[in-house]
Amino acid sequence: MLVVHTLKFKGTARTSLKMGLRLRFLQTIFLGSVLICLDAALGDNISFGMPKFCPLNWTKRNNSCYMTGERFNGVTWYEAAAFCQSFGAHLVEINDKAELAFIDTAAQQVSWVDGPWIGMLRPFGDEFWILPSIRTETQDVDLNKMFGEIAKDSSHDCGGYNRRGKDFGFWRCRRGGSPWCELELATDQQNK
């Protein structure tokens, strides 16, 4: 955003676009210096834009980190997705039956005011659903069939759990829920 300052000299007002540009230039240099310092401090934690370690207070499982946003209740699916994106993450996406078991168990251990949103959408309102980050279904055929059956019986389009964190389903996207974020970690193959 370009900042335009109005300065008064001897009773006359003069808009200084140059001052705004100079200020923006100094802010950019300062931010660049901070990023260079952070890069030096973090060292090997960052790889191809993906972290190697979970942030503080996130739960690690396999190559992902999870953070429940149960204190941020009453948000739409879209607001929850934006919340996760602000951390460089996405809403939790269930990729296989082992992750489904983990998510089912974890969802019931959190005191949700509203149920958590997860990263599943029905873009066409039928039994076809997608994981937004990869824009397709999972590679787990059995899981796809199970979610397809749930989607077929629903008239809503956004994935989530109920308030007790027990029942998965597709809900109204504008219904109140809470974000549940997943951050993918860099793997050794990505480091090569």
Score class of each variant (00 low, 15 high):
residue 25 F to E: 14
residue 133 S to Q: 06
residue 80 A to N: 06
residue 30 F to I: 11
residue 178 S to W: 14
residue 88 G to E: 05
residue 164 R to Q: 15
residue 51 P to S: 12
residue 13 A to W: 13
residue 99 E to N: 07
residue 111 S to M: 10
residue 149 E to H: 02
residue 13 A to V: 01
residue 46 I to K: 00
residue 106 A to Q: 15
residue 140 D to F: 01
residue 166 K to R: 13
residue 73 N to C: 09
residue 156 H to M: 07
residue 36 I to C: 02
residue 176 G to W: 07
residue 161 Y to R: 05
residue 2 L to H: 14
residue 113 V to N: 10
residue 118 I to E: 07
residue 181 C to M: 01
residue 65 C to H: 05
residue 163 R to G: 05
residue 34 V to K: 00
residue 75 V to C: 08
residue 94 I to C: 13
residue 33 S to N: 02
residue 161 Y to E: 04
residue 12 T to G: 00
residue 31 L to D: 03
residue 46 I to Y: 03
residue 137 E to D: 03
residue 89 A to Q: 04
residue 40 A to N: 14
residue 50 M to W: 03
residue 43 G to K: 13
residue 54 C to A: 13
residue 41 A to P: 11
residue 62 N to M: 03
residue 39 D to R: 07
residue 24 R to V: 13
residue 60 K to V: 10
residue 152 K to Y: 06
residue 10 K to A: 08
residue 11 G to M: 08
residue 50 M to K: 11
residue 120 M to P: 02
residue 22 R to L: 15
residue 58 W to N: 04
residue 35 L to M: 14
residue 83 F to S: 06
residue 185 L to T: 11
residue 11 G to T: 06
residue 169 G to T: 05
residue 180 W to F: 14
residue 170 F to W: 04
residue 69 G to F: 03
residue 122 R to P: 03
residue 42 L to W: 13
residue 56 L to E: 15
residue 7 L to V: 15
residue 170 F to H: 02
residue 10 K to V: 14
residue 120 M to N: 05
residue 15 T to P: 00
residue 178 S to K: 12
residue 23 L to D: 07
residue 14 R to L: 11
residue 13 A to P: 00
residue 42 L to E: 14
residue 131 L to Q: 07
residue 6 T to H: 08
residue 49 G to C: 10
residue 8 K to R: 10
residue 7 L to A: 06
residue 141 V to L: 11
residue 106 A to W: 15
residue 191 N to Y: 04
residue 4 V to Y: 01
residue 75 V to L: 13
residue 55 P to Y: 02
residue 112 W to Y: 09
residue 152 K to N: 01
residue 37 C to N: 12
residue 159 G to I: 05
residue 29 I to H: 06
residue 66 Y to F: 12
residue 119 G to H: 06
